[in-house]
């Protein structure tokens, strides 16, 4: 068991107050432990943690470019193997680096079967450059490149299913997680780094600035995503779903209405069609992964 009391991500970093990805960074290192080499892609976390010379990383850490973290990690892993060293290799990339620009390097690295864990902190848009849409942006979210407007209801496409894509690469362990369930997330990280081969974890990491909510609500926002069925927490071992977090589902409105990026769905006029479509996404997820806890009905009197 790894010592989860260790603080390996230091104070003084420049993340916004209530930053979901900053919580993710801390929890990742708690789950992975001190004998870990981290490879970061360019992005919010990289920038807020590494202005020269003020590094927040207490483990060996390397950042090269936006789209090449999986390839850099391939080299790190090969070198460690050659030297007979035993450190774990953990890649941390945002959703833009993972779903979009880094896809080539990720696909190649997973296919080659390197022994590493890739963790995508998913805040559902390019936050570092100012909240532009990515392949992870959910349907109807308003971003600066998919703005809601007179003839737009925000992002036109649903989120890409990255975990399934990497499971299809033969990844031995794939999991989704949320910073709002810290124990579950740390446990998944620990499991992944101790599984041989390329593992993938996608951790939902709410962004107060990008989504438009107060920083004290980050954990609540992540929980609502799970409780509405828009973010499903599951584990896949060798391509098969082995564990799913079940919930008593809430309507998606409870999640959407608290975020500025979905405000156009409620004001000036309520957009029932879009809300219904998002509810359909949650219903589909619930059906696919069997997340619903069926409450016992009151016996008829």
């Amino acid at each position: 068991m790894v010592d989860k009391s260790l603080e390996l991500f230091d104070c003084g970093h420049r993340a916004c107050g209530g930053c979901g990805p900053a919580i993710a960074a801390r929890l990742i290192l708690k789950g992975a432990g001190k004998d870990t080499i981290v490879v970061s892609s360019t992005g919010c976390m990289e920038v807020f943690s590494s202005p020269y010379p003020e590094t927040a990383w207490k483990v060996p850490w390397i950042h090269s470019l936006f789209e090449n973290a999986a390839a850099v990690a391939s080299g790190v892993e090969a070198s460690l193997k050659k030297q007979g060293r035993s450190e774990k290799v953990v890649i941390i990339g945002g959703d833009g680096a993972t779903f979009d620009i880094g896809m080539l390097c990720i696909s190649g690295a997973f296919e080659r079967g390197h022994d590493f864990t890739y963790i995508c902190y998913d805040n559902e848009a390019y936050m570092n450059t100012g909240i532009q849409r990515s392949g992870a942006t959910p349907y109807a979210a308003s971003t600066t490149t998919s703005p809601a407007g007179r003839c737009s209801t925000g992002n036109k496409r649903p989120k890409k299913d990255m975990p399934q894509i990497l499971a299809a690469h033969g990844a031995p362990y794939v999991a989704t997680a949320s910073v709002s369930y810290p124990a579950d997330f740390m446990q998944k990280v620990e499991k992944a780094v101790n599984t041989k081969g390329p593992c993938y974890i996608q951790v939902h990491a709410p962004c107060a600035t990008g989504w438009g909510f107060e920083g004290n609500l980050t954990m609540k926002m992540g929980k609502l995503a799970v409780e509405t069925g828009l973010c499903v927490l599951y584990e896949m071992v060798d391509g098969k779903v082995t564990r799913v977090k079940k919930v008593v589902r809430k309507p998606v409105e409870e999640y959407l209405s608290t975020q500025k990026r979905f405000r156009h769905l409620f004001k000036p006029a309520r957009k029932d069609a879009e809300i219904a479509q998002i509810q359909a996404i949650a219903d589909f997820n619930a059906e696919k992964y069997g997340i619903d806890i069926k409450l016992k009905k009151e016996p008829a009197k």
Binding site: E7, H13, G20, P182, T218
Partner: peptide
């Protein structure tokens, strides 16, 4: 849950924020 990792346990096992780093997010 502290994004700063600045909430520390003291000898009496109670927790305190390190105000040198606490950004006051309220989480």
């Amino acid at each position: 849950v502290c994004p700063e990792g600045c909430v520390e346990q003291s000898e009496d096992e109670f927790y305190e924020a390190n105000y040198e780093f606490c950004k006051g997010c309220g989480l």
